[in-house]
């Protein structure tokens, strides 16, 4: 379990993490979602003590990370793929990391096998592709067989097979009752992998809820209807909770009513339909909506001057 209390980090006058509170429960996969610069990596760095909080604190299983007697057994962390000396082989890197905790060479070979690095383990890391570097980072995180796994953008640079492997890995970890925290700026990835989401925007927690709730709340399905009698149909469907938008003279986009119901009502009114298409708002759109709100809320004072830059940040 990871607990953050009023966790804050300033870099000079810039606030990277702004008094966030959250709890990452064991036994499920928690996703850290947010645009670049939202404070995900900074928060993860503070969890393992690489950055010192300006205020507040964060603990792992009740203790600060550095207070654990075997930190690598407690937390396995992948912060970025480039946390390895480029002149050393993958095997020697893992061996040196493990040696601090008396982790034997047998375990090093095990994690190399687990991450599919056998063929390159003796090569110098400087020549590794992004994907291989990522696998090595994950191997290092698994080295201590940790109770908590923290992965910052683990699927960056991985091929589709690797992405699936990471998904299975974190699901398996959570199923064993361990704590898993992984970050991504891709909502679609989170929808597939995580049970619970903590959404960050500009250093604050925007949402902290089960994945299904967040997606459900942020996604509203739209139905596109093409009909020569669009105007008639539009009046037929008018209700307070239904929004009808006319895109072209014969095309409507309707929100708030199911496609089947539109079809039934058109049929009973004798209206010919040429197209009836349910359109799910994509997760990315849902996510943009979510973070966009935070951006608007934050810039209420000067909407025009900062808006383009902030929209960029939200992306």
């Amino acid at each position: 379990m990871i607990q953050a209390q009023s966790l804050t980090k300033h870099y000079g006058s810039k606030t990277a993490v702004d008094a966030v509170d959250f709890t990452v429960q064991s036994g499920k996969v928690t996703g850290f979602l947010g645009p670049n610069g939202a404070g995900k990596s900074t928060t993860m760095r503070m969890i393992v003590g690489l950055s010192r909080p300006t205020a507040g604190s964060v603990t792992v299983n009740g203790k600060h990370y550095h207070e654990h007697s075997a930190p690598l057994r407690e937390v396995g962390v992948l912060l970025d793929a480039k946390a390895v000396h480029t002149g050393r082989s993958a095997y020697n890197h893992l061996l040196a990391m493990g040696a601090t905790h008396g982790i034997p060479a047998r375990r090093v070979r095990e994690v190399i096998e687990l991450t599919g690095l056998e063929t390159v383990a003796r090569k110098r890391v400087g020549g590794f592709s992004l994907g291989m570097g990522q696998r090595l980072g994950i191997a290092a995180a698994l080295l201590g067989d940790p109770a908590t796994l923290i992965l910052d953008e683990p699927i960056n640079g991985l091929d589709p097979e690797g992405v699936q492997w990471v998904r299975r890995l974190v699901r398996h970890f959570a199923a064993e009752g361990r704590t898993v925290l992984l970050s991504s700026h891709l909502m679609s990835e989170m929808a597939l992998t995580a049970d619970h989401l903590i959404v960050l925007g500009r250093g604050r927690v925007i949402a902290d809820a089960p994945v299904a709730d967040i997606i459900g709340a942020a996604t509203r399905s739209t139905v596109r209807v093409r009909s020569p009698h669009a105007g008639h149909l539009s009046t037929l469907l008018t209700r307070p909770d239904v929004t009808v938008t006319g895109l072209e003279p014969d095309v409507l986009e309707i929100v708030g009513i199911a496609a089947s119901e539109i079809g039934d009502r058109a049929a009973s009114a004798g209206i010919v339909l040429h197209e009836l298409t349910p359109l799910s708002a994509s997760l990315e759109e849902a996510y943009m909506t979510l973070t966009q709100n935070e951006v608007e809320y934050r810039t209420a004072g000067s909407p025009d001057s900062n808006a383009p830059e902030l929209q960029e940040a939200a992306r």
Partner: peptide
């Protein structure tokens, strides 16, 4: 193809920093 799940092999319990 990487294995589906990490091996559950436990480390020597004495392994600390």
């Amino acid at each position: 193809a990487p294995p589906a799940a990490p091996s559950a092999a436990r480390l020597p319990t004495a392994s600390g920093l």
